[in-house]
Design a protein around this nucleic acid. Structure first.
Lengths: 222, 222
DNA sequence: GTCTATAGATTGATAGAC
DNA sequence: GTCTATCAATCTATAGAC
């Protein structure tokens, strides 16, 4: 499997995946044609279908390649936060949980130092109109999200289930938007955020979201 | 302009706009063909290009029809919050500003009681891969956003510009995600939010976001 | 594994009769 | 304004030579 003699084949597959990642981020899945993709990857058109079977399968590979390690890391981080809190006989910390969930998305995304294209792709996940593609994200995402949900419920025992669930979705929305903004070239609009490092963005995110999660549960009075 | 004799023409145009809004929300712009659209709207294929000129122009009309009143209402609401605070000699309230900005999106969206399709379309605005379409949203959105930015700066004089701008983008991200969730049919996934009324969702949003906006500005220490 | 060539389907847009 | 018919472009996928 990890045979060195497969170098050339893997080179081609990797070049296709890398070019696809960039083009999908820039133009979306539907707007990226196989011919343009093959041109940018410096491979023949037929190579794409030879190596991946279909465009849909390529899309899934592009997503899974990055999303799988990200969610694995999220699970490990959350598990560690849970165990540390357990050992110390206290509730898990809200900021710790959020950081455990958010950080892998920014750290494990993209190869090159310049552009982290997958941030844009993943940030578009829940807006994807194609149900098949959207389900690829949801399938990988849901177990991690439900684990976060369970731990956050421990961290915030006073919060109603409805408020907890909505607030976690607000977390997802803010995170996805921040990912898109970090991954794309800075837009020449007056409302663009300042060009910070991803670590700074994560700090802003965690500070904002942790405080929001801990807000009083006013919406219950009705 | 508002001549009653144009009823038949306007009926056709409105039927096309309504069918397009629904299909765009369900399948996205690129995945919606003119032929399917004409079929669902019960008009002839050629009628779409006759009345709107091109598919791109139709897309813009679908967006502007709802977005324009929404942002106009936002501006009026924000102006009123500003003037009320000024009259009472105090800063604008964070919750008031957020509600002024958020509420119109949920109130002025969609005609039918059942499905508010434009919530999905607008919720996808910043994820739209097509730059031309995305710019339609940004063009309408930016003045309103910058006004909110200016008023929020008054409401939170201690917050750094960078933190303020990032937090407002987190507001946008959470809002967009909530709009998508409210507008689409409830997904059969375990992580879906509870099926609340839009008023309840707005309350959850404002409570969460106002508290987050007011978080201590930790990220400055670096 | 890589290439050329092309099939087969779908699309946005338009010409011209009514 | 509405219709039928069709053009021209584009796309995914594949067949078959090398």
């Amino acid at each position: 499997m990890a045979d060195k003699r497969k170098t050339k084949q893997n080179d081609t597959k990797t070049r296709i995946l890398d070019a696809a990642e960039k083009l999908f981020a820039q133009n979306g899945f539907k707007n990226t044609s196989i011919s343009l993709l093959a041109c940018k990857a410096h491979v023949n058109q037929a190579a794409v279908n030879y190596h991946f079977g279909s465009k849909g399968a390529l899309v899934e590979q592009v997503i899974v390649r990055r999303l799988s390690p990200i969610n694995q890391q999220r699970m490990e981080n959350l598990q560690e936060v849970k165990e540390t809190a357990l050992r110390q006989g206290r509730r898990p910390g809200i900021e710790d949980l959020l950081r455990a969930f958010i950080e892998p998305a920014f750290v494990l995304t993209g190869t090159a130092p310049g552009e982290k294209w997958f941030l844009v792709i993943a940030g578009r996940a829940f807006s994807e109109p194609d149900e098949t593609i959207r389900n690829v994200f949801i399938r990988h995402f849901e177990p991690t999200f439900l684990f976060l949900d369970a731990l956050m419920k421990e961290a915030l025992p006073g919060l109603s289930d409805a408020a907890l669930r909505w607030r976690l979705h607000f977390v997802i929305g803010a995170l996805a938007h921040a990912m898109r903004l970090c991954g794309s070239h800075r837009l020449p609009v007056a409302s663009a955020p300042p060009p910070d490092t991803t670590e700074t963005v994560v700090k802003h995110l965690v500070a904002f979201l942790a405080t929001g999660m801990d807000a009083p549960d006013d919406a219950e009075n009705e």
